[in-house]
């Protein structure tokens, strides 16, 4: 399958944080959920993809081209929603439209106004009068109105109430149906991603812990709930992490079916991305 985004061995060092050999790829037409706790390296990775940070090592290819050598051409085809970064809030959607007409070759004024109407955003109101949800919708409308082939969304639902979050997820679902677009969607609110992501890439402390198809992850992985005695009988090779609570052990297993054939423990729960994140980060290995 053709990849629209390929990252190989991306490294970037700060005083207190480091991206370590980040590698993953996003196949064409797919949505990838990029998950991890706050400060895990999601935004830094997206900034590197966009060359907002530059002094990194490794290789980033977008549509098969090096992102630094073909910066301008690539950015004509990318739409972005960045966490807290946008046009100055004294501008109006109309001002943004006029500016973007002169920035993107493929800017589609009709499409932008159609989105404004769909999202109930007034074209002559200053951004500063918008609620947080409205601003995000405006950012999404702006990111979509030049027919991008790749969307990079950095925490587009962060800080929003459940209603606004659901609306944004619905908007993205509609876009996937209408447009031929691949999406990298970073979030620490994993419930949003379970609904729409085809792939999940999990970053922790600047390292990619896993990158897999969502179905595979949710179908294969499971949480075994057992007593201490039962836990001690489980081979270390058969689980990834475990967490000891007051009355039971929660054990993260990478293959529910295999586990069932090998052990008699009957309580194996379905996993959610939240469970996966908590166990991978907070769980113990041995």
């Amino acid at each position: 399958m053709e990849n629209v985004l390929e990252i190989k061995n991306l490294c970037k060092k700060y005083d207190h944080f480091e991206l370590k050999n980040v590698s993953f790829s996003l196949p064409k037409g797919m949505i990838m959920g990029f998950i991890g706790e706050n400060g895990a390296g999601k935004t830094t990775t997206i900034k590197a993809i966009l060359n907002i940070i530059q002094s990194y090592s490794g290789e980033i290819k977008i549509f098969g081209f090096d992102n630094r050598a073909h910066d301008k051409e690539i950015k004509e085809e990318i739409g972005v929603v960045l966490d807290d970064m946008f046009f100055p809030e004294i501008l109006t959607p109309n001002d943004i439209n006029k500016a973007m007409e002169g920035i993107y070759k493929n800017w589609d004024t009709k499409m932008f106004h159609a989105y404004l109407k769909e999202f109930s955003l007034l074209p002559n109101k200053q951004i500063k009068t918008f609620s947080k949800g409205m601003r995000k919708k405006l950012e999404i409308a702006t990111s979509l109105s030049h027919h991008p082939k790749l969307l990079l969304l950095d925490e587009p639902t962060s800080g929003l109430d459940p209603v606004a979050r659901a609306e944004i997820i619905q908007i993205l679902q509609n876009i996937i149906e209408k447009e031929e677009c691949s999406i990298l969607f970073s979030s620490h609110i994993t419930a949003d991603l379970e609904q729409i992501a085809d792939y999940i890439t999990f970053i922790h402390n600047g390292e990619i812990i896993l990158s897999k198809a969502t179905n595979e992850l949710l179908d294969k992985y499971g949480i075994v709930k057992c007593s201490e005695k039962e836990f001690k009988e489980i081979d270390k090779k058969d689980y990834l992490k475990y967490k000891k609570s007051k009355y039971e052990y929660e054990v993260l297993v990478p293959n529910k079916k295999e586990f069932k054939t090998k052990y008699t423990i009957s309580v194996i729960d379905k996993i959610t991305l939240d469970d996966l994140m908590v166990l991978m980060i907070k769980g113990e290995e041995e």
Binding site: N51, L82, I103
Partner: peptide, 8 residues
Amino acid sequence: AYSISLPN
């Protein structure tokens, strides 16, 4: 920072 994500 946002402007850098735009072409040129």
